[in-house]
Design a binder for these strands. Structure first.
Length: 1319
RNA sequence: GGGCCCAUAGCUUAGGUUGGCUGGAGCGCUCGGCUGAUAACCGGGAGGUCACCGGUUCAAAUCCGGUUGGGCCCA
């Protein structure tokens, strides 16, 4: 485990992690590792290739990524193919803009080929861009193999589905009135209409009744342009209608309207006088005729002969609003169409594809855009005297969701899936789907399906899946269902693009009449593309195996707008083709809005892109925020502040990790050396509590993930990290961590911190994959990646609800103590004498006593005292309050004396007496009896005590100061000031100092009492009280009224110390003894004789000799090479043996700057090998390594060569005369080591390294050692060699053939050496 | 107009299924602490008619009915 020096800088960290994933192909390995698991098909709802993603898109993908990582960690074999929806109008619209095209006609003029090719280019480019953004978010999907709706095989799957519908008789062509976009010149599906408010004319039109001249039927409409297409009027047969006479000015008119609305009409149309002449049922009006106002203008209106034309029809769909009379234009409204069909009225539709009137309406209106023509129509109505009243109305109106233009209704021939024929099956299939949340399916989706209509699947556009229908003029129809079948077509060219316009040129010969069959020129609704993706992405039906393995998809997630979109289109096609839903479960998620609550729309500039956020705060922070901000099914108002908060949480996690890793690595803590169970007996209450919390966290996190309440998982983890781990447990165990030596308390704390951190990294892995990876790979190398780790199970035996409850109380009390300290101005450095707790129940009392130590330690309190339940605290000061009234009545003249006497008696005694019935008191020789009614008692707090209530009782805090407490407080204050000065001096944490203090005698005695403690805490080798403090840095302080002057001097021992401790057998302790004896610099050591050194207490003769030799041979120089590369990565593996002479302190100071190995350098960049460094040469044949070896030998460095090649051959080939060569072989004799005998190898190397200070070892044949042993063992050997080399100023050179190792092994090797060289 | 969902501090929100003690957090604000996690971290305080109206109940943020406002989907 290496220590962590860097702060949490997510952007860099994530970049490194992504590069590492890339380099070691982690994603592929993680997938491979779960291959044997149960198949689990997660289907990506294909985002439309619009160009870039917004927060909502990011949320969607992150949610998917999170769940698929989670499922994978559960051991499931997850299918994670991403998809893109690439056909359709939005791209056509974009391309039209880029090519400056205004209409469909221009596309045809400019050539469809170019247009379609540009569409494809756009779609592909957008796809690439979006993929990059998804990758930036850390989303792990199979980006190399996405499914694309434009692929020929995908298109063939769509065709096959159409063929299924055709074979089942569910595909039909029909004349219908449909929503139509005049700009895009195509029919729209219901799912393609967006509604918002629009202000339209609101007109009342008079239709003169034929049967009663002078009388008018009054109709109301908001679409004046539909009047030319009017063919009838409808009334509700049961409503009551009125014949009324109205007067405006001098004009009087007779009208027929619904009776209920007469008053409204009078007010609205400013009618001055209205008289109801007669009322009658709607049914009585049926069959009457009127004269169409445009009869003279529109020839069709004259020609129409149907008996119901221009007649009043009955319809129950008429509502009781406006006039209660509905004008019917069968060519302009779906309901009108249906009514018209009932009465054999033709759907007359004088409007063309571009929304313009045809010549059929007469020259006044012909050629006008219908919505623009409203005014003209009204002018005409006025001219004909038919307009009764005109106003405006604001109402919700449908718009094309692609181009946002208002829709109109037109009658056209279109292809339909007859969804209404199998609606019941849809409802049934939907009921079998598991919906999260359940109301999304049972209510919302069910509601939509129940109201489903036939699905118009044809579009009169270009960039889409071509409709696979060929028709003959004889009426014969052929539906193509595969690419193979297309090959039979006339004009087919192998490998041709099956899009329009190329496919339009293919023809079949009619098998009925032999004529040429031509393709219906339409394309398909894009929703059909998306709808079939569960099998199209598997290549079905061309490929069957994948389909059988995976289909149907297990889980999908999209936003709630997909109720009418993808959830629906999949269900329809699934039921159509396979009789069931193609998905088993759905998580319906919400929408992301911007902070103003507006939907994210790129075109309106309200979208927020995730890229900026990721580049400042990191993908993990964004992901964590998105996962925890809301329940998935609720909408989120995206707040950057929220991402910052998430970032802070991760930062705290990182800090806990950094802090823990520091001490663990200093101590070479090996987490695998002991199991948690084995340490149970050694655990303190807070340890057991922490483990209990951890197990509970695993339990809760798992259950909420299972139910897709991802926000709960995220919040539980966050709470655990912040509250339990960082703010509490770390504080509790902090002191234990810097104990020296083998200490069981420390090991327990390490183990638990390790467990907590690695568990958090695992639980967070689905949400924050990068930081999890960084933490986990350092703490736990059991798996190469955290994403390969199995999702943890929890152990209920460890969960102790009582203990957790107790700790909650301790925390509550700690908060109370903090508040009291703040109010009383006693800061945490000053110890408090005692805390007295009175609880309501014995249970609480027991829990608090169990947690006594953490309670006291956390609050710097010296003792805990419990008051038995039901009793008063016996130190409460009871005082007697005499009741003069009652006393006076009995004892009259003595009463005031009695009162005084009572007050002076011990209140307890008085109370005891009174409680028994009476208390006797002597006064002037008489005994008076004090009865209960004569006194009452009050209790007051003892001096210096402050009380406060908590949830289960009262705490009393005794703030009395004693000299001992004061001394301790001053000691702590002193430590704090010295630390501050050390910091000001920018001293290394390891550096030793000398401290002089000038102070009052009182303070001096406190210092005397606490001298050892202060010295240890501040690394002071000398601490003295003096007159006139001197030092490198002198500061005058004033604490609690005590002034003192501190002088701090750096002993500058660090470097010398390091030199000493590198000598074999010299520990830090011994080095310090030499220091204290005055040998505190290299010069002083040089000046000393061996005897001088051995005279130092605790230093043996041999040790003295070693030190002497080391100093005088000049072999020892500065431990850190002057040219040490900045990116040197020294990794301390948890399992590496502790080297003699290398101390914990030294480990602490080892600089590490990178989490991973240094990037390999090219051999050309290597000038010479440096001492104390180890090198890995990656080359196919060991040549560069030998060259470097020989170059180094030429500088007079002694060499040692270990190789698996035949020694004599090596010797001659590289001209190695005197260099000892060890042959790794099972057959050789002299100078031979068997490859499995690592111990012998290690021993011989140690010998060389210790004898020949400053030699170079060439180890050629690593892969041979690895195959003969195992990788980890060899790695350990290398770590040990590397350490020795660093200590002995030698060089280690290893050659490896990278193709013989797995990349993660190579990666691990690279981490262990200082440099990797590419040969 | 209908279906579904939602409304709690300045902002983002927990709690609501199982009605019950002073409605919790985070950010922001403010006061303070820590100084060996430190360009970090911790604590105290102020701030809430739990959208509104009505009902059930000893007791409602919570259950019921309605109103208003917002979102999605439809007409």
């Amino acid at each position: 485990m290496r220590q962590v020096d860097e702060n949490y800088s997510p952007v860099q960290l994530e970049k490194d992690i992504r590069m590492m994933w890339e380099r070691t192909r982690t994603y592929e390995k993680v997938k491979k590792a779960s291959e044997s698991g149960k198949a689990y098909y997660i289907l990506d709802g294909p985002p439309y290739t619009t160009g870039s993603i917004h927060i909502g898109t990011a949320w969607n993908k992150v949610l998917k990524d999170c769940i698929l990582r989670f499922r994978r960690m559960q051991g499931l074999n997850v299918r994670d193919q991403p998809g893109y929806d690439m056909h359709g109008l939005p791209i056509e619209v974009k391309v039209e803009q880029s090519m400056n095209i205004k209409s469909k006609k221009e596309i045809e003029e400019q050539g469809m080929e170019r247009f379609v090719e540009t569409c494809r280019d756009f779609a592909l480019r957008f796809k690439e861009k979006m993929t990059e953004e998804f990758k930036l978010l850390g989303v792990w999907m199979d980006w190399d193999k996405p499914y694309l709706t434009v692929d020929p095989s995908y298109i063939a799957s769509v065709w096959w589905t159409i063929k299924q519908a055709y074979d089942k008789g569910l595909l039909t062509i029909d004349l219908r009135v449909l929503p139509w976009c005049p700009r895009c010149e195509t029919a729209l599906a219901e799912a393609e209409i967006e509604y918002w408010d629009e202000t339209d004319p609101s007109i009342y039109v008079k239709f003169p009744l034929v049967e009663s001249p002078g009388e008018y039927l009054l109709i109301w409409t908001t679409t004046p342009w539909t009047i030319p297409g009017n063919l009838a009027a409808a009334v509700h047969p049961d409503f009551t209608y009125a014949r009324i006479k109205v007067r405006r000015g001098t004009t009087e008119e007779l009208l027929v309207v619904v009776e209920d609305k007469v008053d409204e009409l009078v007010e609205l149309a400013k009618i001055e006088d209205a008289e109801i002449l007669q009322t009658l049922k709607g049914a009585e009006l049926v069959g009457l005729h009127y004269t169409h106002p445009f009869k003279d203008m529109v020839p069709y209106q004259q020609q129409v002969t149907n008996e119901w034309a221009h007649a009043i029809l009955p319809s129950k769909t008429v509502t009781n609003e406006s006039t209660g009379v509905v004008h019917i234009a069968p060519g302009h409204g779906p309901e009108d169409f249906e009514i018209g069909a009932e009465y054999d009225l033709e759907p007359f539709c004088p409007v063309d594809e571009s929304g313009r009137y045809t010549d059929e309406v007469g020259e006044e209106l012909a050629g006008k855009n219908v919505r623009d023509a409203n005014d003209s129509v009204m002018v005409q109505l006025v001219e004909k005297g038919a307009l009764f009243h005109e106003g405006t109305v604001t109402h919700r109106y449908g718009h094309c969701w692609r181009c946002k233009k208002p829709i109109i209704y037109r009658v056209t021939d279109q292809w339909f899936l007859k969804v209404t024929d199998f609606k019941d099956e849809l409802v049934e299939a939907n009921a079998k789907v598991a919906w999260y949340p359940d109301w999304a399916g049972a209510n919302r989706q069910n509601d939509w399906i129940s109201n489903a209509r036939d699905w118009c699947i044809s579009r009169q556009r270009f960039w889409g899946t071509p409709i696979p229908i060929w028709r003959c003029s004889c009426g014969n129809t052929r539906v193509v269902s595969s690419l193979d079948e297309l090959r039979e077509a006339e004009g087919y060219v192998e490998g041709m693009d099956v899009h329009r316009p190329w496919i339009d040129r293919l023809t079949f010969k009619c098998d009925k009449c032999g004529q040429v069959m031509n393709r219906v020129p339409d394309v398909l609704d894009v929703w059909l593309d998306a709808g079939v993706c569960s099998w199209a992405s598997l290549g079905y039906p061309a490929e069957k195996a994948e389909f059988e393995k995976w289909w149907p998809s297990e889980w999908i997630t999209e936003a709630h707008d997909q109720t009418r979109g993808w959830f629906y289109s999949q269900l329809v096609t699934g039921v159509l083709a396979f009789g069931r839903s193609p998905y088993n479960s759905v998580l319906m998620h919400g929408w992301a809005f911007n902070p103003e609550g507006e939907a994210m729309s790129k075109s309106e500039g309200t979208a927020i892109g995730p890229v900026n956020v990721v580049n400042t705060l990191g993908a993990d922070s964004l992901r964590f925020y998105l996962m925890k901000a809301n329940a998935p099914w609720e909408d989120v108002l995206f707040q950057e502040e929220g991402v910052k908060a998430a970032n802070r949480t991760l930062n705290i996690l990182w800090n806990v990790y950094k802090f823990s890793a520091l001490y663990m690595s200093i101590d070479r803590f090996d987490p695998s050396s002991r199991k948690l169970d084995q340490l149970r007996d050694s655990m303190k209450a807070e340890d057991l509590w922490m483990v209990s919390r951890l197990e509970a966290l695993k339990r809760d996190a798992t259950s909420s993930m299972e139910s897709y309440e991802v926000h709960k998982t995220a919040r539980a983890i966050e709470d655990f990290v912040l509250e339990d781990l960082s703010r509490w447990y770390v504080k509790l165990v902090r002191d234990r961590l810097w104990k020296e030596g083998e200490d069981i308390d420390k090991i327990v704390a390490f183990k638990i911190l390790h467990e907590a951190l690695s568990t958090c990294s695992v639980l967070l892995a689905p949400m924050t994959p990068h930081i999890s990876e960084a933490i986990h790979t350092n703490l736990d190398r059991s798996e190469e990646s955290v994403h390969m780790v199995r999702w943890p199970s929890f152990n209920p035996d460890w969960i102790d609800a009582g203990l957790e409850q107790g700790m909650d109380l301790v925390r509550e009390i700690s908060e109370i103590v903090a508040r009291i300290r703040q109010d009383s101005n006693v800061n945490l450095r000053w110890p408090v004498k005692r805390i007295v707790v009175k609880t309501r129940t014995d249970e609480t009392s027991d829990l608090l006593q169990r947690l006594k130590l953490p309670l006291l330690a956390q609050n710097n309190i010296k003792s805990l005292q419990m008051v038995p339940v039901e009793e008063e605290w016996d130190e409460m000061m009871l005082s007697v309050v005499p009741n003069p009234n009652a006393i006076g009545k009995v004892y009259r003249q003595w009463s005031s004396k009695i009162a005084v006497l009572l007050k002076n008696r011990p209140a307890k005694a008085v109370k005891a007496g009174v409680d028994k019935g009476e208390y006797s008191l002597g006064i002037e020789g008489q005994l008076v009896k004090i009865l209960p009614n004569m006194v009452s008692f009050t209790s007051t707090l003892p001096p210096d005590v402050v009380s406060a209530e908590f949830s289960d009782g009262i705490v009393y805090l005794d703030l009395e100061e004693t000299p001992a407490l004061e001394a301790e407080g001053f000691a702590r204050e002193l430590i704090r000031r010295i630390q501050q000065m050390r910091k000001d001096m920018k001293l290394d944490v390891e550096e030793y100092i000398r401290v002089e203090v000038e102070c009052s005698p009182k303070l001096a005695s406190a210092i005397d009492t606490w001298k050892d403690h202060i010295s240890r805490e501040t690394r002071a080798r000398r601490l003295s009280t003096v007159e006139g403090s001197k030092g490198d840095y002198v500061v005058e302080w004033n604490v609690a009224g005590e002034g003192f002057v501190l002088g701090v001097t750096s002993l500058k021992m660090k470097d010398t110390l390091r030199v000493l401790t590198e000598v074999q057998g010299i520990s830090t302790d011994k080095a310090l003894r030499l220091f204290d004896a005055g040998f505190d610099s290299i010069d002083a050591l040089k000046a000393a004789s061996q005897d001088d050194l051995s005279n130092v207490d605790g230093v043996s003769r041999i040790e003295a000799k070693r030190v002497y030799d080391a100093i005088h041979q000049g072999e020892v120089k500065e431990a850190v090479p002057a040219q040490a590369p900045a990116t040197q990565a020294v990794t301390q593996d948890a399992g590496a043996p502790v080297k003699e002479g290398k101390t914990a302190e030294e480990g602490a100071a080892t600089p590490t700057a990178e989490p991973l190995s240094t990037p390999p350098v090219d051999v050309a960049q290597v000038r010479e090998l440096e001492r104390s460094f180890s090198y890995l040469v990656e080359e196919d044949k060991p040549e560069t390594s030998y060259k470097l070896f020989i170059d180094t030998l030429k500088k007079g460095v002694k060499g040692y060569c270990i190789t698996r090649n035949y020694p004599a051959k090596i010797r001659s080939k590289f001209d190695l005369k005197d260099v000892p060569i060890i042959w790794l072989s099972n057959v050789g004799r002299d100078s031979t080591i068997r490859p499995k005998d690592l111990e012998k190898l290690s021993l011989s190397l140690e010998q060389f390294l210790s004898q020949e200070n400053g030699g170079i070892v060439l180890l050629d044949g690593l892969e041979y050692l690895i195959t003969n042993n195992n990788f980890i063992t060899v790695l350990r050997l290398i770590q040990s060699l590397r350490d020795q080399v660093a200590i002995n100023q030698s060089i280690l050179l290893m050659a490896v053939n990278r193709s013989t190792l797995e990349s993660h092994q190579l990666n691990l090797l690279e981490r262990e050496v200082d440099y990797t060289i590419m040969g």
